[in-house]
């Protein structure tokens, strides 16, 4: 598994870096930390490049490099990075430009994982999409935007599972699995169950049906889901509820659950014009959401 952790800045992103670092440590997986610096107007590119050349002559670092250095320090504090006998972090290479479209510092993890600190410039969602395309990540961890359109673009166009760290807190989260009959829901269960197992979290299985006559089919969905959680060794309870799925998921999740759900089965065209359930849960809810793809 390969994780991409997107951060918005230095100290302000400490909680996100810690959360991502812990997940990477739990899965013992490769981790890339991505910081997207501000986009420059295209006709100013040469001006910016000339300025950077002079800055490097005076040994002044690029603005985004400080953010990466901070992220490296936090990962070091989490004991995620390999260090040599003198206590220095073991680097495959120091900061280099133009590694798959980004500045990159490549370090080694404690268990031989690749830890990459990457700096891109441009519009955040566009750059995340490009990064996922070149990096082949399985899960992207990213904060939630306040703009619905951006959330919708992120969920529709990023081609890997997403963990959206909305209102992340230093608490023991429960997992809330929003289950239905779709293949995406099953994928979400598999991914979520592994994550819950590694984080030693308990879970709730929830299925929402539109009226009382559908309760039985809801229970059938749950029974398939139960076997996955049982195999992963995750403790759980289960609920079948009647009503609007989005509202119920948000209400049940509160602030202390991580919602796990599949991406919508709707067509790309439909997703383009209409917000899916996942978009609404991210936008209107107040907790982290894991969306499987």
């Amino acid at each position: 598994m390969k994780l991409l952790l997107c951060i918005a800045g230095g100290e302000t992103s400490r909680d996100t870096i810690v959360a991502g670092g812990k997940i990477a440590a739990a899965f013992n997986t490769d981790l890339s930390v991505l910081y997207v610096g501000e986009k420059h107007a295209t006709h100013m590119t040469s001006a910016v490049n000339l300025s950077r050349m002079k800055l490097s002559e005076w040994k002044i670092e690029l603005p985004g490099v400080k953010v990466l250095e901070y992220a490296e320090m936090v990962l070091h504090d989490l004991n995620l990075l390999e260090v040599d006998d003198t206590g220095e972090i073991v680097e495959v290479h120091s900061l280099k430009p133009d590694i798959n479209g980004a500045y990159e510092l490549h370090a080694m993890g404690k268990h031989g994982q690749n830890i990459r600190l990457r700096l891109r410039e441009g519009e955040i969602i566009d750059e995340v999409i490009k990064e996922v395309d070149v990096g082949g990540y399985d899960v992207t961890i990213i904060g939630a935007s306040k703009e619905r359109r951006l959330v919708q673009r992120l969920i529709q166009f990023v081609e890997c599972s997403l963990f959206i760290t909305k209102n992340i807190q230093d608490i023991d989260y429960r997992f809330l699995f929003a289950v239905d009959e779709t293949e995406m829901s099953r994928k979400a269960l598999l991914l979520g169950a592994r994550t819950a197992h590694f984080l030693k979290a308990e879970a709730t299985l929830l299925t929402v049906v539109s009226n009382d006559s559908d309760i039985k089919s809801g229970e059938e969905n749950l029974s398939k889901a139960e076997s996955i959680l049982q195999r992963a060794g995750v403790k759980y309870d289960k609920k079948v509820m009647v009503g609007d799925p989005t509202e119920i998921i948000i209400e049940e999740a509160g602030e202390d659950h991580i919602v796990v759900m599949g991406s919508s089965k709707s067509s790309q065209l439909s997703k383009f014009f209409k917000a899916t359930k996942a978009v609404k849960v991210v936008q209107d809810g107040n907790c982290p959401v894991l969306i499987a793809k």
């Binding site: 040469s46 001006a47 000339l50 300025s51 050349m53 002079k54 800055l55 005076w58 002044i60």
Partner: peptide, 17 residues
């Protein structure tokens, strides 16, 4: 201005630091 700003910015940053 492009040339001069590129030349002068590192000077200003070094002074500030």
């Amino acid at each position: 201005g492009l040339t001069v700003a590129a030349i002068m910015l590192p000077v200003a940053i070094t002074i500030v630091i």
